[in-house]
């Protein structure tokens, strides 16, 4: 499978980040894994890496909802106003701890490609790749 050029993990929980990194690396999903611990860091990363000429702009963002400083929802609102040249290519998947109606109602209006229940598993990753990137993990 051709690896994705770059994946951005946005989560304040270091254990979660560790486990997700471990999983994605083991599955060989991306050339590069970037971690941001809140919305502000994620925005900074995007502004730095997604220029007109850059090649390491993330194509997949796995976004947590509850984070300090700037949470996932606030990040998405700010992201909508961000003038990025490669915005069309960026897929944002929201990670939640519950598929609770309260959370789902809030994210429906936002520019996200999907919602996935934590924790990430091989199957969930594979589904994301199939739906959004037309590729598949090797058996």
């Amino acid at each position: 499978m051709q690896k994705l050029p770059s994946v951005l993990l946005v989560d304040d929980d270091s254990t979660t980040n560790f486990l997700h990194q471990l999983l994605l690396n083991r599955l060989g999903v991306a050339e590069q894994l970037v971690v941001a611990e809140n919305g502000v860091e994620a925005l900074a990363t995007l502004t730095q890496t997604c220029t007109a000429t850059s090649t390491n702009c993330p194509v997949l963002i796995l976004l947590d909802v509850n984070m300090p400083i700037m949470n996932g929802i606030e990040f998405l609102e700010a992201y909508q106003h961000l003038p990025l040249p490669q915005k069309q290519a960026i897929v944002i998947v929201m990670l939640t701890t519950s598929l609770n109606a309260r959370d789902l109602d809030r994210v429906q209006e936002l520019p996200i490609a999907g919602v996935v229940n934590k924790p990430l598993t091989r199957e969930k990753v594979n589904t994301i790749l199939q739906v959004h990137f037309q590729r598949e993990l090797p058996q």
């Binding site: 929980d13 254990t15 979660t16 486990l19 701890t97 519950s98 609770n100 924790p119």
Partner: peptide, 21 residues
Amino acid sequence: IYTASHDLKAPISNIEGLLHA
């Protein structure tokens, strides 16, 4: 209850993930 169920989910998922790792 909502917050508890929500906030407890993350660490238990992590524990499970760490157990697998």
